[in-house]
Nucleic acid binder design. Structure first.
Length: 150
DNA sequence: GCCAACGTTGGC
DNA sequence: GCCAACGTTGGC
């Protein structure tokens, strides 16, 4: 089993939204590296942190589980969607998504600031300078270290 | 294949 | 709102 971290702006899709819905397609990933992690890495049953970005308190908000392996993201074909990609075709879809299922909402978000202060997380990809990836792997040791802070 | 211009991400 | 960092685009 593998561990992941996936970013979302809570104004767009938050841990509360996922808790309410129970399960959801993870729409809108438009970065090749992030797509490749979903396509080549993610398996049903993998665990992922939901990270809130671009908000008052950026940080890890809870835990979800991969509920369905990668398949084409329908929003790339939807002209009215902000994620529409006119260059993508149904014969050869450019963008994929996975379905995620709610597991747990932390009582409080574990703030980015707190993650940065944690020695065990010094090598975490999320914390590297200039990191903008919205989907990335997390090691088992990092996973445990973040859970301890929740 | 290089690289400048441009767009996006995301913390602050 | 600012700006650093980075990815993508497109001319050459």
């Amino acid at each position: 089993m593998q561990y992941w971290l996936m970013k979302s702006e809570p104004q767009v899709f938050s841990i509360d939204d996922l808790e309410r819905q129970g399960r959801s397609p993870w729409e809108g990933v438009r970065n090749y590296q992030a797509r490749n992690f979903m396509r080549d890495g993610m398996k049903v049953g993998d665990q992922a942190f939901l990270y809130h970005s671009s908000c008052d308190v950026p940080g890890v908000a809870g835990v979800m589980e991969v509920a369905r392996a990668a398949y084409p993201d329908p929003t790339q074909f939807d002209r009215r969607s902000p994620y529409y990609d006119e260059a993508s075709t149904r014969e050869s879809p450019r963008w994929l998504l996975v379905d995620v299922a709610f597991s747990r909402r932390f009582r409080d978000v574990v703030p980015l600031e707190r993650l940065r202060a944690e020695r065990a997380l010094a090598g975490m990809q999320l914390l590297r300078r200039g990191n903008r990836l919205s989907v990335m792997p997390v090691t088992a040791a990092e996973w445990r270290a973040v859970l301890k802070l929740a």
